[in-house]
Design a protein around this nucleic acid. Structure first.
Length: 211
DNA sequence: CAGAGGATATGCT
DNA sequence: GCATATCCTCTGG
């Protein structure tokens, strides 16, 4: 298994996007195809939590072996899910999934965590179109931090069957990192062009993308 | 549709 | 104290 998805997504061998599977305690399996990621390159990356090589209790998973999960709490109330990609502080943030199975359970999980929970039913596109949304939809929380994605019984990756055409991948600036200098501009966010499941579409970046 | 504001744990100055 | 790899609700055009 290639556990350096940001290289896969960047390279010319992007033919088999991965499917993330989450098995709940009751046996329900939730499935989503990864359609958007961000790469964080490690100590040199000013926008990464591992910048400067600093290790804290929070970011320890970034420095563990490739395939280790780094799940952290953001803004005091949401989770983000990353996969360590080299073991030196580099990782991949999962930003959006195309829901493939267990959508009703995802909808339930999402509304449970949401604020005014009594409100409207969520559309399919609202289930996994953001890093913290997908954590809610798949019931991923801090207890998954530092787990091994290649060994865990509750969460793993599967290859999705190759489609008729290679999907075009857009490389765009990462989201939500305004204060990281030149690193904020680098095209380290990758998503499937035209996918309705991504969190943020960058029309300008798509102009420069070779299809 | 765009923008403002709130919730609030963790790490840094 | 202050910023942050976010999301949701409310308001105004």
């Amino acid at each position: 298994m290639d556990l350096r998805p940001h290289l896969r997504w960047n390279g010319d061998s992007f033919t088999c996007p991965e499917v993330l599977v989450r098995r709940l305690n009751d046996g329900t399996e939730l499935r989503g195809r990864i359609v958007e990621t961000e790469a964080y390159l490690g100590p040199e990356d000013e926008a990464a939590h591992s910048r400067g090589g600093r290790q804290t209790p929070r970011n320890r998973g970034m420095f563990m072996k490739p395939g280790t999960l780094y799940v952290y709490l953001i803004y005091g109330m949401y989770f983000c899910m990353n996969v360590s990609s080299r073991g030196d502080g580099a990782c991949v943030l999962l930003r959006a999934l195309e829901p493939l199975g267990g959508l009703e359970t995802m909808r339930q999980l999402r509304s449970t965590y949401r604020k005014g929970s009594a409100s409207r039913a969520l559309k399919d596109r609202e289930l996994c179109s953001g890093p913290s949304k997908l954590c809610q939809a798949l019931a991923i929380d801090k207890s998954f931090d530092q787990r091994d994605l290649t060994e865990d019984k509750a969460v793993w990756l599967e290859h999705s069957p190759p489609g008729p055409r290679e999907p075009a991948v857009v490389a765009a600036a990462r989201v939500g990192i305004g204060n990281a200098g030149e690193w904020a501009q680098k095209p380290l966010r990758f998503y499937l062009q035209g996918s309705p499941w991504v969190s943020v579409v960058d029309r300008v970046a798509e102009q420069g993308t070779q299809v």
